[in-house]
Design a protein around this nucleic acid. Structure first.
Lengths: 350, 350
DNA sequence: TCATTTCATCGTAGCGCTAAGATGCTCGAA
DNA sequence: TTCGAGCATCTTAGCGCTACGATGAAATGA
């Protein structure tokens, strides 16, 4: 049939013809209206069992996949939680993200991930795009953000959760612990082992200000305790096993009396263990070592590592709990702050 | 009559009054039409410099944040790439995701993350939700998926990329390497070191079938080479340092002649290093060890680890490259397959 | 000179869904 | 019989944006 002849009547614009199966198709097949399908999908109990069965059958038959983009637009909020961490390669954040995601996924929420590489401007850009998705919530790492980031988030009216750090002034919710206390615990432990010449060895502390906070807490405890000498040494690169070896050599050079080391994380501690083995320095006889993180290897290495466990997993779980309760209940924005604390695990390296 | 009718029901429905700043607000302030603003945002070169300046100023002044949800709906495709990996805690995938994301973010694409925990049904559920977002592309790990997953993806009409594995029949694009070849390389290397009683120690191989493939390649090479004896031992739990210790003890018990070990990854290898130190077994004199992964610590541990580097980073970069070219060019769906290969790095443990 | 092309800009119809309010329908009470 | 209440279901108006096609002005050609 030649439709061109009838071309004078209003031709519907050619539009990208998504052949996708829509809710209307399901509705037609189930012999109900689209809104009943929508209702069924959101609150199955609100439709009659008979209609529900029909709809379920139609969905199954057609292989219907709801379009969450359209849903998000209509509902002015999407089933997405945006998580922004410094780096997903970092075992700490990988653990937290993993736990958080497991909890959120089971509630039908998706995770939109971003990493800042410890760059505040990058973070701001990520927050901006995250907001473009009208997420159900935004999770950030730490309490320190650029002024514009704070402004964006305050204007956004979206639940915000800051994790892995406490002690400052959270935008909304916060789950984490006090990093200065971690540094202090390490120092106090070393002092209790009659170590008097201490050092805090950290990496990337110019950017990772949580590590810097641990160093500060360490120094503070040294000052208050009976330490004879103490210092903080930073390696500008990433916190790796190699960095640990470099840091150990620098610190021994600086103070041959050194007998107690706290590390900004367990990778560095492991590097120190290896380097001491290489140098013939006995651990813990000559030097006690305390790590941070309680990573996978910390219990199994030689000697096993005394370390401080921050519970990245618990942070993720608690964060998920707060977010879910906020999303469900639309609770008033009372600042919910959860301190997950830290635990010093004494093993053979101290 | 008409006027009566009009008069009485002109009550506009109360609607969630999003106070959000929209493109129309920007357009009004910049004294252009909304579509010009949209055009400017998508193709800045297509509008006149003068109009562009005005629009940019208006955006800045209002603090306008585009609504990507609406954009995605209108354009029938969102600026999101969905990445599904077994576990983000695994350093391999963390590395790849990180690289992939860095590349995609710089092109304005977001990453929607999911993890399957090596469960095919979980993967199917994730693919389903991923499709609900009408993503610009979907990235999966491995070539092996449930039948429904394959069906969903083929029907989706969305670019699909499978990574970290080659050798099978990809759905669309694939970036990875041949795992059997990795196992074979390890075996050949051990044989070249005059090791004759070999073992492949792996973890979670009932689920991680890429590790199982490496084991198969290892056995195949043993069979073809001059190996006197060989075996494959699996630890059902996760691939950790602890698992390495357990596996070493089991394999020594099984074959005290053992003089060459290949591991399904470097964590296990590290566990073997520690356990050998504990048992007083000299590496590489008594036993040669080859790992897989070339992780952070592999060059620095004692002895430094001979290992096979799979280049998770490169996989991520190449994957991003393929996806971007596909999105931009809407190229015909010729299967693009990239082999990133692997490199054996000889160090002191063999 | 007028027709044609080029270019920036505009008007507007959806994209697929949600949610407020409207509409029936059934049932019990008046 | 009438009236509401209670409930399932439907109608409809957007959500904010993109992309198609139209418009009008300037540039070019014959």
């Amino acid at each position: 049939m030649d439709t061109d002849d009838l071309g004078k009547d209003r031709v519907p614009r050619k539009r990208r013809k998504m052949q996708r199966i829509t809710m209307a198709d399901v509705a037609k097949l189930a012999k109900v209206s689209p809104s009943t399908v929508s209702l069924y999908l959101r609150k199955p109990d609100a439709v009659s069992p008979a209609a529900g069965r029909e709809i379920a059958r139609a969905i199954d038959h057609l292989g219907y996949v709801p379009n969450l983009v359209a849903g998000g637009l209509a509902a002015a909020s999407s089933r997405v939680v945006s998580i922004i961490v410094p780096s997903i390669r970092n075992a700490f954040f990988a653990e937290t993200v993993s736990a958080l995601q497991a909890e959120l996924t089971s509630e039908g929420l998706q995770v939109l991930l971003g990493h800042t590489e410890y760059d505040k401007e990058q973070e701001e850009a990520l927050v901006r795009t995250a907001l473009s998705w009208a997420p159900a919530a935004i999770v950030l790492t730490g309490l320190s953000h650029s002024r514009d980031t704070r402004k964006l988030l305050k204007a956004g009216g979206i639940p915000v959760l800051e994790m892995w750090e406490l002690g400052g002034d959270p935008l909304d919710m916060a789950v984490g612990f006090l990093h200065p206390r971690v540094g202090a615990s390490a120092a106090e432990h070393l002092l209790s082992k009659r170590r008097r010449n201490l050092a805090f060895l950290g990496a990337r502390m110019q950017e990772d200000h949580r590590a810097a906070q641990r160093a500060e807490g360490f120094e503070e405890a040294c000052r208050k305790g009976q330490a004879a000498s103490w210092s903080v040494i930073n390696h500008p690169g990433a916190a790796t096993v190699e960095a640990g070896a470099i840091l150990l050599n620098r610190s021994l050079q600086q103070n041959p009396q050194l007998d107690g080391i706290a590390c900004s994380n367990d990778w560095i501690a492991l590097g120190i263990l290896f380097e001491c083995q290489r140098l013939g320095v006995a651990i813990p006889d000559a030097i006690s070592v305390v790590g941070f993180g309680d990573l996978d290897f910390s219990a199994s290495c030689i000697p096993s590592l005394t370390t401080i466990r921050p519970s990245g997993d618990l942070i993720g779980k608690e964060a998920a709990r707060l977010i879910l309760s906020r999303i469900r209940a639309a609770a008033p924005p009372l600042p919910a702050i959860i301190d997950t604390g830290h635990v010093l695990i004494e093993r053979c390296s101290s």
